[in-house]
Computed example of a mutant assay.
Amino acid sequence: MTKFRPCIDLHNGRVKQIVGGSLSADERELLTNFESEQPAGYYARMYRQDALTGGHVIKLGPGNDAAAREALGAYPGGLQVGGGIQADNAADWLTAGASHIIVTSWLFDAEGHFLPERLNRLVDEVGKERLVLDLSCRGQENGWVVAMNRWQTPTDLNVDVATIVELASSCDEFLVHAADVEGKCEGVDAHLVEFLGKYSPIPVTYAGGANCYEDLERVNCLSRGKVDLTIGSALDLFGGTQIRYSDCVAWNRGV
């Protein structure tokens, strides 16, 4: 069965919900749906109290390390962490309390070419059982392509059956943000959810576009219960009006 997985998105040290496609280096076109008055630890403690597992802390750019460490310290072993993770600092984040480290951009060179030797180095450093590969992607004519650098730079790695099957042997889970719909609350990418549920041999968390409580059941049906769902901007916890956090907690307790 599909589970609701919580998130803590950090930008400039604050908990925010951002339209994913608007993230760029200069941030002049950044679109923010929500900025919390509460620190990251507040949300981590809530997730711990409600026994929510497998959530993620994502550092969107610099200036977020202290907030991320606060969240991990408030819920040790209960949250994954991503954003700027590489082989040299991966173990430090596990020591800080992360259950897993999440990696995308470091696995590519500046031009977006996939570097399998870096993936092998990460596996050697932390073990595949502590590694989540972020295959957050943008749509293209015949499917999807992994996007790096805050989802702005397309890479040469397609999200297709061959990629999913090959990379599954080197990690514990996949995290997939549908960058084209992330933060827009316009509905999930049904085709992507169905694809991930059909072909991924390991657990997957999908994020992007959820705008109603019924999306949990929709993802459950589309993926045959094999894909979990993260909900952000639509959640009342983050200023949304479409989905109640308490309903998502109740959903998980019924799984």
Rank of each mutant, 00 (worst) to 15 (best):
T2V: 09
T2E: 03
R5E: 14
P6T: 07
L10D: 06
R14D: 02
K16A: 09
Q17W: 02
V19M: 13
G20P: 06
L23F: 01
S24T: 10
A25P: 00
E27I: 11
R28V: 12
L31N: 08
L31T: 03
T32H: 07
E37C: 12
Y42T: 05
Y42I: 13
R45M: 15
R48E: 06
Q49Y: 08
D50V: 13
G55Q: 04
G55L: 09
H56Q: 08
H56V: 14
H56D: 04
V57E: 03
V57W: 00
K59G: 05
K59L: 08
P62Q: 13
P62H: 06
G63H: 12
D65F: 12
A66N: 00
A66K: 05
A66Q: 00
R69D: 12
A74L: 10
A74F: 15
Y75L: 10
P76D: 13
G78K: 09
G78P: 12
G78Q: 10
V81D: 03
V81G: 05
V81W: 02
V81F: 06
G83H: 03
G84H: 03
Q86S: 14
A87C: 07
A87M: 10
A90T: 07
V103R: 01
T104D: 08
S105F: 06
W106L: 01
E111F: 02
L115C: 10
P116I: 01
P116F: 00
E117T: 06
R118P: 10
R118Q: 04
L119N: 10
L119I: 11
V126H: 04
E129P: 00
E129F: 03
R130W: 10
L131F: 03
V132Q: 05
D134I: 15
L135D: 15
L135K: 11
C137H: 00
G139N: 13
G139P: 08
N142L: 06
G143M: 09
V145E: 01
V146F: 01
M148V: 13
N149D: 05
R150I: 08
W151C: 08
T153D: 04
T153M: 01
P154W: 13
D160M: 13
D160F: 09
V161W: 03
A162F: 01
T163W: 01
T163I: 10
I164T: 07
S170Q: 13
D172F: 15
V176F: 00
A179I: 10
V181N: 00
V181R: 01
K184F: 04
K184G: 03
G187M: 08
G187A: 05
L192F: 07
E194P: 02
L196F: 11
L196H: 12
Y199N: 12
P201K: 13
V204K: 13
T205R: 01
A207I: 15
G208P: 06
G209E: 15
E214G: 14
L216S: 04
R218L: 15
N220V: 07
N220I: 09
L222P: 02
L222G: 05
L222R: 00
R224H: 15
R224N: 07
K226F: 05
D228I: 11
D228P: 11
L229K: 05
L229H: 05
T230F: 00
G232R: 06
A234V: 15
A234H: 09
F238T: 08
G239H: 08
G239E: 03
G240F: 08
Y245P: 12
S246H: 08
C248S: 14
C248T: 00
C248K: 04
V249H: 07
W251Y: 11
W251T: 02
N252R: 10
R253K: 09
G254F: 12
